[in-house]
Design a protein around this nucleic acid. Structure first.
Ligand SMILES: [Mn+2]
Ligand SMILES: [Mn+2]
Ligand SMILES: [Mn+2]
Ligand SMILES: [Mn+2]
Lengths: 220, 220
DNA sequence: TATTATTTTTAGCTATATCTAATTTAATTT
DNA sequence: AAATTAAATTAGATATAGCTAAAAATAATA
């Protein structure tokens, strides 16, 4: 059974909100994520349920099925491969790629994605540090910790961001917190949880707890 | 005023059928080209007329407006740039690109097309020899003649094909009639108009009048 | 437990894009 | 000029994807 563009977008949202299928997701949360109204979500859930990509009990939220998970991961794979293409080949900035990838991910052509993957040299992560599922939907996840949960004097490397909004990414560009940067926690302000961080052993930057919570690191 | 994907596809068809806006186009012809029914075309013509990209007098066919021509050329530009990308960068065969380009041409991002154009080194022709309009819709047309209209002993170079169907293009691959090939008309069978042609001064091939009519050459 | 608040669904409407069948208009033949 | 044929439009469906407003179900609180 084929999915429409709208159905693919909803399924992807459900996959993300359920944290990969482990949690149940509410109608309201989906409406929030999709920027639609709960009434529209109810309609869509019936359709997705008919196509057996979700399990739906009225009034009790939805679970994604194995088939649904597979479909969502394919769309995510396409989204992230296109993002790599835009950044690596067309010189887009990492804050400019999301919208376009949101459209490109719906192009139907297995050959296209296979060739694109090869052309990009089988990348494992997208420009925001998110892992790219392989063609079978397998993801090589790395153990990642939000920067604000690290201890004083701990070191690590920035590997991803939780928030991919242009505003947030441009802020990171400005302060120099790019993916791959080596960091060390120098100080934590007890009052508001904000941090002082050493970047690449040469630059001191300050950031709020909120910002740090959206930066993911591998500890070292 | 923005056009939907369906509207863009219809407008492109009208542009092609009208030979760049010079002829009036009938409802039935559009239905044939779009593989829809005349009733659907009537509906669409009303919409396109409301958006002022065509001039529509009921029962008397349509003309494309200047604005419509501009829009159609933008879509054609995107289609052909994507085809170049697929062939030059992703190693698609020239008979594999049309369907995918038919989807890719509707991605809305001026930046994407600008960057893609630069990345491909501002190509002037697509894999089928068709000219790529610039961002203002200007086309550098070459004087092209169907192969079957050439005289005996005349020489020329294949620069484009009229039919871009996979079946036709695969046939050309098989006989070695690629774009750029230098050709000479060796013989014409009076009975059915079929031709014997010398390709690149080394290979003799025979083709029907029908095939030759779909191959475009520059005479030399 | 009864009331209130929140969440979710349903009913009914709009808009796009298609279809078939019926009707209307235009073009072509007697 | 009338009759016939062909082309095009309209009427009335269906399917998708969204909305608002009202109703219903569940969850929270007094
Ligand atoms: Mn999308
Ligand atoms: Mn991303
Ligand atoms: Mn198209
Ligand atoms: Mn082409």
């Amino acid at each position: 059974m084929n999915l429409t563009t709208a159905e693919e977008n909803y399924l992807k949202a459900i996959y993300h909100l359920s944290e990969g299928g482990s949690k149940s997701v509410s109608t309201n949360d989906i409406a929030g994520e999709m920027k639609t109204k709960p009434a529209s979500v109810s309609d869509m859930l019936r359709k997705l349920s008919d196509k057996e990509v979700i399990e739906y009990r009225k009034y009790y939220g939805v679970h994604i099925t194995e088939e649904g998970k597979k479909r969502a991961l394919q769309t995510i794979r396409k989204h992230r491969l296109w993002e790599v293409f835009l950044v690596d080949k067309l010189n887009f900035a990492w804050d400019e790629v999301h919208e376009v990838a949101e459209e490109l991910e719906h192009i139907q052509s297995p050959l296209l994605i296979q060739r694109l993957d090869a052309y990009l040299n089988y990348p494992k992560f997208d420009p925001h540090g998110d892992p790219i599922p392989d063609e079978y939907g397998d993801v090589r996840a790395r153990p990642r910790v939000p920067l604000n949960e690290m201890d004083l004097d701990q070191t690590g490397q920035i590997v991803a961001v939780k928030d991919s909004s242009a505003a947030f990414l441009r802020y990171l560009d400005k302060v120099g917190a790019y993916i791959g940067a080596r960091i060390k926690i120098l100080d934590r302000v007890e009052f508001d949880g904000s941090l002082e961080i050493l970047v690449d052993n040469k630059k001191n930057i300050f950031m709020s707890k909120d910002v740090a919570g959206n930066i993911l690191v591998i500890q070292s």
